[in-house]
Write a protein that binds this DNA or RNA. Structure first.
Lengths: 190, 190
DNA sequence: ACAGAGTGATTGATCGGTCACTCATTAAAC
DNA sequence: GTTTAATGAGTGACCGATCAATCACTCTGT
């Protein structure tokens, strides 16, 4: 029984992810989401009281997954550059393997449907990333730029590379990932 | 008469720009756009047969304006780096001075409401930019990366810097623009 | 072993409201 | 006087959300 509950909730989130990304928030009806998830229209509202709660829940889940993947094996790297590169690869590989989630985050990270509360809670999971940049500035690994500028350039460039790989379809994806990191590292390093 | 016609069409585009950016495509009703523009609900459909025609027309206008601003005074620059920097500054300054248009382009450049036809027509106005990158690769000013990767990184980074300036509100905007270009130039230059 | 009351998840018909778009009428321009 | 632009009430379709009925399943007393 518990199993079924989780099944339906997961199915609803998966359906919402697909449809919100394809057609936007207002462009997707709750009925379409329910149908795609294989449940009745009323069932959606048992799990998510409103349509906004659904997209906020989805955003929370996806961003949480990304932050966990992003930080994986970073601390076991030896040099600072290797740590940053590990994070870069984690980010890009997640984006390639999870196109739908990647697009969803891009579309809705600054949309009005995501509440500031959700945004704040999610932000806390990325403290380790900001700390790594602060550390790099402190020990002189990074150039003398504002930390928020470095984090933004790093994160957005990783998204640019995912876009490039998915859209331009280079023969060698790893080469593209390497090239992308090289550009960013040359740019932000001391 | 011609004047009034242009007035109403411009008012509709301006209202649509504001509302689409704030609330999304499906989140904005044509009635709201008409009201904001100060015309009757039926008038909108005299100028744009469907809501999709309206957003496509708007996208065409805004992207066209951006491409014209972007290329301004670029050819009068002496060195290759100066040409690229001119384009960078044009891009960032336009973004800062036209926040609403800047946000609109970011939100709708890969949305399903913009037809592939609109996208193709708009793309033609950016040929000069791709040519400049190809030129830089040919004469060894730029590092050996795929041209599409360089154009994407350059364009997206300029957007990142506009975001940074608007959101983080640094005391010295020109410094931020300079820093941003320095990072990108160090990254993509030979 | 089993009847049947109890429980909470699930359902889909239904609701008031809003949507994009139409069209008969009016007003303006020449 | 004719043409052209502008109007806004009206249209059927669809929206998010509700809720009484139904369902699968558990538990208890015999």
């Amino acid at each position: 029984m518990k199993k079924q509950v989780e099944d339906k909730k997961a199915a609803l989130l998966e359906a919402a992810l697909k449809l919100f990304t394809e057609r936007g928030f207002h462009g997707t009806s709750t009925a379409q989401i329910s149908k795609e998830a294989g449940v009745a229209t009323g069932t959606l509202f048992n799990y998510f009281p409103t349509k906004e709660d659904l997209i906020n829940g989805l955003y929370f889940e996806v961003k949480g997954e990304l932050s966990r993947k992003m930080g994986k094996d970073v601390q076991t790297q030896k040099t600072y550059e290797e740590k940053l590169k590990k994070m870069w690869c984690n980010l890009v590989e997640w984006g390639i393997e999870n196109q739908d989630k990647f697009l969803f985050v891009g579309q809705f990270c600054s949309s009005p449907y995501i509440t500031s509360h959700t945004r704040e809670v999610v932000m806390e999971e990325y403290v380790f990333f900001h700390d790594l940049v602060t550390e790099g500035l402190a020990n002189g690994e990074l150039g003398d730029y504002p930390p928020e500028m470095i984090t933004s350039i790093f994160y957005q460039s990783s998204r640019t590379i995912v876009d490039y790989i998915l859209y331009s379809e280079p023969q060698d994806r790893n080469k593209a990932i390497e090239d992308g990191f090289q550009i960013v590292w040359k740019g932000v390093a001391k």
